[in-house]
């Protein structure tokens, strides 16, 4: 079909923006950085709107982790007596629980990040990575807030106040956030063509928590377990990350694999997430139509 007469090419000197070409990774990341306020406002708007109709409002940011910690303390600390002589079981459980909740939130919100913003994707042109990024920001803010009740409880119950060891919190949060971002990117784009993933994410998060040293320390429980299983659980990304958190929050000695394990997982998953998301990104609007 020949183009209609009124579509003959016209010489036009002004610089054109080509919408059909894809940006390189560099320009993409610059565009993403320019949209950082958008990601932040999306995250905060999401958190605010979830509590907008409650009486206690933003107090829930603090109450939610407290109630969660209370439930787990009751079930595992008191009823099942998982503490096995650990004098500071409360600190151990809460540090693991709050840190794991960060990963679980980003994974769950990441699964909805793209699919629940279909109208935004249909009408606005922006780097889609903003959406899973805002899911991570939401989880990070909630986690940072939950550190306040953690220090209050751990401090009063066992004297675990912040000290020099708390500096380890910085690399721990950086590795953890990189890991979560990679996870969120992967889940957000893969759930669009394979909606079935959205149904499994919650179950995966639950089994993952029980296979991680959240409620019980792996080393003690694994004394009688096969060597290969012990190895596998050590390579669990959350094992290293939680190890770093316990160094930072409870001043427990960290093992070498805590450091290299969490660094490798953080870097690897982030790179993988960025690559997969970039490949999937231009296909997303087709699936959402």
């Amino acid at each position: 079909m020949t183009p209609p007469v009124n579509c003959l090419p016209v010489a036009n000197p002004s610089p054109a923006l080509s919408l059909s070409s894809r940006d390189g990774l560099g320009t993409y990341l610059v565009a993403l950085w320019r949209r950082r306020h958008f990601a932040w406002h999306m995250a905060m708007g999401g958190m605010r709107s979830r509590n907008s109709s409650t009486t206690l409002g933003l107090l829930w940011w603090m109450l939610d982790p407290l109630i969660l910690g209370g439930v787990f303390l009751l079930v595992f600390g008191v009823i099942l007596n998982t503490r096995r002589g650990d004098p500071n079981y409360i600190g151990f459980l809460l540090s693991g629980l709050f840190a794991f909740t960060y990963t679980r939130t980003t994974m769950m919100r990441g699964a909805n990040a793209v699919s629940s913003n279909a109208s935004l994707i249909a009408t606005q042109r922006f780097p889609r990575m903003v959406l899973p990024l805002s899911a991570v920001i939401e989880g990070a803010v909630a986690f940072s807030v939950s550190l306040v009740p953690f220090f209050l409880i751990a401090g009063f119950s066992n004297g675990d106040w912040p000290g020099l060891h708390t500096l380890v919190l910085l690399p721990a949060i950086v590795f953890h956030t990189m890991f979560n971002l990679g996870l969120s990117l992967l889940v957000a784009c893969l759930v669009i063509p394979f909606r079935d993933i959205g149904n499994v994410v919650g179950h995966i998060a639950r089994i993952w928590m029980y296979l991680s040293p959240v409620i019980w320390p792996l080393d003690e429980r694994l004394a009688n377990a096969p060597q290969t299983l012990a190895r596998m659980l050590e390579y669990n990304p959350m094992a290293g990350i939680l190890g770093l958190y316990r160094t930072a929050l409870l001043d427990r000695t960290s093992l070498p694999y805590h450091w290299w394990g969490s660094a490798a997982w953080a870097l690897g998953l982030l790179v993988l997430g960025v690559i997969v998301f970039r490949r999937m990104e231009h296909k997303l609007p087709r699936y959402l139509t």
Binding site: A16, L17, S18, L19, S20, I121, A122, T123, R125, P285
Partner: peptide, 19 residues
């Protein structure tokens, strides 16, 4: 949506003479 750049087309190009 193709003109807005939110839906990539299978073939063809869109050029925008604007910042």
């Amino acid at each position: 949506r193709v003109l807005a750049g939110t839906l990539p087309s299978d073939t063809g190009t869109v050029e925008v003479y604007s910042e």
